[in-house]
Write a protein that binds this DNA or RNA. Structure first.
Lengths: 249, 249
DNA sequence: GAGTGGTCTAGACCACAAT
DNA sequence: TTGTGGTCTAGACCACTCG
């Protein structure tokens, strides 16, 4: 099914996050890993290069790779969404739609989403879970046919994006904002945090691959559950085929 | 000097930006490029994978690579530092060093910063202000000659990076992490927040332009004072209805 | 000097796309 | 069916790090 280098990358990533290879330690040499996994050195290089690009390890010619970080983090510069991220890390994403209703677009929304004022906009309040644990509260808005897709989904649909893909609508994050926001009453109840506590907030526009906006989202994470990573691609080293998990269009 | 795959990547990038391979066209096949450049297919793959990661081309098994964008958009906001950001927005950045002392490098720090165990590492605790208002608490570590630069600065120096620049040491952020962290006692006192409250945390390695690590930092912002903005629009660049759903960076 | 990562070759087979 | 990219192997040599 999955390629060997992907399996190996997943395994090494797990070893790092589980502190089998703690922060600041050296990874085994490529040749050693090749023997351990019973593959060629090239295949090992494919795997560790993926970890390097994700910022887990640093690599310098002549020296062993060093573990730079040990926490799982969503890469905000990629187009991977929450459920894809969860699955790639061997976790089970879940979702529960709590509210789902249409309202006419306000003037602001009309400009934001490039629709007419008064055109219906679907508003969704959803709790998202990881391995059954509440992780974040998602407040999203959708226009036009994307709203139809969402309305046809069951209440506990784990992933909207899969439905978009099935409908041949590719979803892409545009500009993103990250800050903290005070928990509202819904957040307090759903995430089990104290009233007035601060949540990690991630806001972003949703766009089709053609660049047309079709909605946005405001995701608020329970403290301690999520880290966002971004890499300064100035050290853009590469080599053939990373562990790029793709989805059909 | 540079590797062949780098030369080839540079050449292909130039051909794309100069519209020798215009937007939406197909790149030559790997085997064809291999013959043209007189190298093996693997070397070609190293080159075109770099272009793929930069968002210039899309790659799908079985089909030729397609040109996705033709402009040299600078990749990812190399995060402007705090004082630069403040000045650009017409605000006055300030800083106050509260602690500044050297301690021998632990084993982890030695590997992380590529120094010998026991070599002195400068630890700095600093309050940073905006128009006189406390905004964030910064915990940073520096090695070697960078430590000397910091130690020579006055206690209220508004910007370390300017001192680095004056010393001809270019500072570059590497991988960055953003999450929330509980306020420690120092944070409570300095930022005037409640005990146990959550702060927006920004962690990053410091590297020279050559890629050598020379320190790191852990910055914690008072809620409501800072928002991080980023965009992955370069990859979202449109081409009809192509699938651009991937992870990796 | 021994070990390690960076580069490169010359094959092979497979999965998927286009026609 | 043919072409193409994705994966993988088993070598080789070089540049660099480290003890």
């Amino acid at each position: 099914m999955a390629a060997r280098h992907e399996h190996i990358a997943n395994d090494l990533r797990r070893r790092i996050t589980e502190s089998i290879y703690p922060l600041g330690t050296r990874l085994p040499a490529e040749t050693e890993l090749a023997v351990d996994y019973g593959v060629s050195r090239s295949t090992i290089r494919q795997a560790v290069t993926a970890l390097q690009l994700e910022g887990f390890v640093d690599s310098r010619q002549g020296a062993r790779r060093v573990v730079l970080r040990t926490t799982l983090a969503q890469d905000v510069a990629s187009h991977e969404n929450f459920s894809q991220w969860a699955k790639r890390n061997g976790r089970t994403p879940g979702g529960l739609i709590l509210k789902r209703f249409r309202e006419p677009a306000t003037e602001t929304e009309a400009i934001l989403f490039e629709v007419a004022i008064g055109e219906p906009v679907l508003r969704v309040l959803r709790l998202r879970t990881l391995d059954g644990e509440p992780i974040l509260v998602e407040r999203s808005r959708f226009v036009s046919r994307h709203a139809d897709i969402i309305e046809s989904l069951p209440q506990d649909s784990p992933s909207f994006s899969e439905a978009f893909e099935a409908a041949r609508t590719v979803e892409v994050h545009g500009n993103q904002l990250i800050d903290v926001a005070a928990a509202e009453s819904a957040d307090v109840t759903l995430l089990g945090v104290e009233k007035g506590s601060q949540l990690l907030r991630h806001r972003y526009m949703l766009r089709t691959a053609a660049g047309n906006p079709f909605g946005d989202s405001d995701d608020r994470y329970k403290p301690g559950t999520m880290t966002f990573a971004l890499s300064n691609a100035s050290r853009a080293r590469s080599w053939s085929s990373l562990a790029v998990s793709r989805h059909a269009r």
